[in-house]
Each structure stands twice: as C-alpha cells, then as structure tokens.
Write a protein that binds this DNA or RNA. Sequence first.
DNA 1: CATCTTTATCGTAATATTGCAATAAAAGAA
DNA 2: TTCTTTTATTGCAATATTACGATAAAGATG
Lengths: 110, 110
Amino acid sequence: MGATKNELFSARQNGTSVLLKALAHPARIAILELLLKEESCICGHIVDKLPLSQPTISQHLREMKEAGLILGSVEGNSICYCLNPDTLDKLRDYFSGVSEKLKKKSIACC
Amino acid sequence: MGATKNELFSARQNGTSVLLKALAHPARIAILELLLKEESCICGHIVDKLPLSQPTISQHLREMKEAGLILGSVEGNSICYCLNPDTLDKLRDYFSGVSEKLKKKSIACC
DNA sequence: CATCTTTATCGTAATATTGCAATAAAAGAA
DNA sequence: TTCTTTTATTGCAATATTACGATAAAGATG
C-alpha cells in the first residue's frame, strides 16, 4: 500500500487529477501567476522571483511541463517557459461544467 | 526540509493550492463526479460505488470537507454529503480568469 | 581553447500521502 | 439494554513529495 491506485479509476479521472496535482502546490500556483502576468518567461527570471532554490524551481517547472501546463523553448543559453493555453482551457471547461451542472441540480441536500 | 514552505507564499496562493490539492487524486475526482450526478449522497453509497475500502473513502471525504469542497449533514444513522457550490464557483472563477488573461496576452512566446 | 552563465539532474534527508485492518463511536432497531 | 448499521479514528507500512547542496550539461563569451 501507500501508492495511489490509479488503475481503479478512469483515464479521464486520472487525467484530471494529474492536471490538478501539477498545480496543487503554492510554488506552482505562483509560477502560473507569474507567467500569466509577465512578458518575459525566462527560467532564471522565475528563479529570481520565487523564494526557493534553483534546483527546487527546476523540479516544479518539470512537473508542470510533464503535465502539459507549460511549454519550454530553448532561447540561446536559457529556457523560455510559458503557459499552455490548451491545457488551461481544459481546466476552465472542467470547472465551468461542474458549476453549471451543480446549478441545474439545485437539490440542496446539505 | 521535506515539507512545503507555505509561509513563503501569499494566503491566496496557499488557499488556491489547498483547494486543488483536495482534488488532486482520482478517488476525490470520482467522488466529485458522483456527487454531481447522483441525487442521494449518503456516505455508504459513495463507499459502495468506489473501489476503495471504507476507511480510505472516509479519509478522502474528510480531506474534501476540510477544504470546503463538500458539506456533510447527519441524516439519522448516516451522513449525507454534497458539493459546496460556493467553493466550486471559486475554482471556476479562478480558471476562467486565467484563460481570459491568457487570451488577452497572446504574446505566444513558446 | 578556457571560462562564465544558465538550467537540469543526482543524491538524500525530512515530511506528507495513500491505503487498509482493527477498532471505536454514534445512532437506530429489536 | 443488546444488537446492528453506519461512519470515524487509530496505527502502521508502503510510497510519494518537497527541498536543496553538489554537480553535470550545454551554450555563450572572451
């Protein structure tokens, strides 16, 4: 035991939870919000702005990249990171759907 | 080391990550979707529908309740759980805002 | 070339999460 | 009250996450 039993759930449920897990940390929320605000998205800039060490930020960036939340491109010596609109639209659509279905139910049982 | 350094981030960033962490597991996504679909939300019903043990489901329900995602009310011998629309609207608003801001930027740098 | 800058990876310690058997707690039924 | 049903809690093993120093890798610069 100890590990999440992914195999017991649907691919869509696992996919959704993977996306949310990739944002389930304040540093990764901070990275999302920084990339949303700033023009430049050089990796070193992110490291400078956040109060964690360079290896730690690099690890967070990799998790976000593996989940498809951000894209990275080589820019000479450094790496340019930015948000992946497609993935963020998926999350928007998911929670829009949830709120909408919930409003239609309105069988407030609690 | 090892623990998340929450104190280095803003209250809003921590709050957002807490909400997302409470959904960052396929079982908790499955619970969300079950409560969205079903009329009845008796705890035992959730346990019957999901492929995990009763103590494990109880633990997931507690995490979702502590994050404010679900509400629970005593119903005689059992507990009735249902989704908290306010919290889910917050998530919808958050990701709607992200997608909108991202569309306005459109400085596709990667 | 050698050196500097930038980012990624390795290794590891500290901590958190996941899952469940066993058990407790709480309320209804007999 | 005693028994049953329902949910929560405890305790623990397995695994995952977080953070960072040290170091490697890759490209720029002199």
